[in-house]
Write a protein that binds this DNA or RNA. Structure first.
Lengths: 222, 222
DNA sequence: CATGCCGGTGAGCAAGCGCTTAGGGGTGTC
DNA sequence: GACACCCCTAAGCGCTTGCTCACCGGCATG
């Protein structure tokens, strides 16, 4: 037995809302089956027989809805990155001080990575298995994500609210911190997605030297 | 062509010092070949023929020195985790204030992940492919790493130097930040391992609310 | 009832996988 | 020269892989 097989989900975590509109039903079932299989074992270690089996279908059924196994990964990556990017762009365009917008971005981005850590793991760690053109497309979305966060950070610097000598490096660090949640988060562990989100929002504010930011975890809606 | 194949190293990054004492020579050549192959394509996508080919040998030669492909991954994981753990424990046991020790830990831990990002990628992202007993052994070393960092953080809290409401969560965040360097670091990118290390040491000090910590990147030996 | 089509299956193909085995060439010892 | 030893190779075994293809039941339509 592989170590990854041990890493099973307590709850199947449901289906991200973004997948509701994937029809027909069989295509969606195959997609969620693929997400769980890819997250547990990795793309290359997952067989098309495994995916089809989880969806309660024969191996051949997969190819009625998807041209190849790689196309399945591509669709998952696209939907996942779209969700993540929406979160960050919404925070970037929201009203409020830079500190509020950064905290909001980190809180919801982290919460997404924790709640949908199965999807997030595939989205963040399996892109290397994409074909060249698909890889380029996804990379563009990732650059857009970084741009959204950097915009908030630079707003804060301009307003004099943040103290950041290296905006680009600090942005990478903040995003990196959020993304890595997908690697270690365990739904049966000590903290809920909400708790991690609030802790991390506070940590991010400290990282950018937000003036008078309270200790991490103390700010928020509690 | 896979996206991973695009992710080639400019310089082959040499061989971590820890591998000097792996003999015979052929075993070491196979090991470094495996590290590069695993880092580029992932464990499951790498074939034994590929590893042997990179080492300039026939596929069968691999099995003279290693029982299985998995044992190769296990040896790499063990050597890599040993190096990383040594770095953190050295910083934990060093003299100096908690702030100095934390900065030192983060700086050298990050530098290791950037300089040896090929090895680090395998060490951090392929452990799921280990067999059950090997996985357990490596997991113990990872817990020890977390313990070393938490010890420094708790020292700082006790001394009144740090302001950390959630020591365990903050420790996870700091370690997570460092580890993720292996995922995004690019030796042909904007920053050197040393620059990232210094930036991150400053960010970590801010995360723990170290009293009077200067802006990240400004402290250090410059 | 006949027809066409959508969404599915069972069987299987060519290729590639991890790993084994029989054997061979170079070197040191006597 | 005979021998043993180590390191390595050529060939290939048994199996799994991603994917295909001939076929079929259920259902709407005329």
């Amino acid at each position: 037995m592989d170590a990854e097989a041990r890493n099973t989900e307590g709850t199947p975590e449901g289906t991200p809302e973004a997948w509701r509109d994937i029809i027909p039903d069989a295509a969606r079932r195959l997609m969620t089956a693929a997400v769980h299989a890819f997250a547990e074992r990795g793309y290359h270690a997952t067989t098309t027989r495994d995916i089809a089996g989880r969806a309660g279908m024969s191996p051949a059924a997969l190819y009625i809805h998807y041209k190849t196994k790689e196309e399945l990964l591509y669709q998952i990556s696209k939907v996942g990155h779209r969700s993540a990017l929406d979160i960050l762009e919404e925070a970037r365009d929201a009203a409020g001080t830079p500190a509020e917008r950064l905290a909001d971005a980190v809180r919801s981005f982290v919460r997404w990575h924790a709640e949908h850590h199965t999807t997030a793991r595939v989205v963040q760690y399996e892109i290397g298995a994409l074909a060249e053109d698909h890889y380029a497309e996804i990379t563009a979305m990732r650059r857009a994500s970084e741009g959204a966060v950097r915009a908030i950070v630079e707003d804060g610097v301009k307003a004099g609210d943040f103290d950041v000598p290296d905006a680009r490096g600090t942005t990478v660090a903040v995003l990196s911190l959020c993304i890595d949640v997908a690697r270690w988060f365990n739904p049966r562990g000590r903290s809920t997605p909400d708790e991690v989100g609030r802790l991390y929002a506070g940590l991010a504010l400290r990282m950018v030297g937000a003036a008078g930011s309270p200790p991490p975890g103390d700010q928020g809606h509690t």
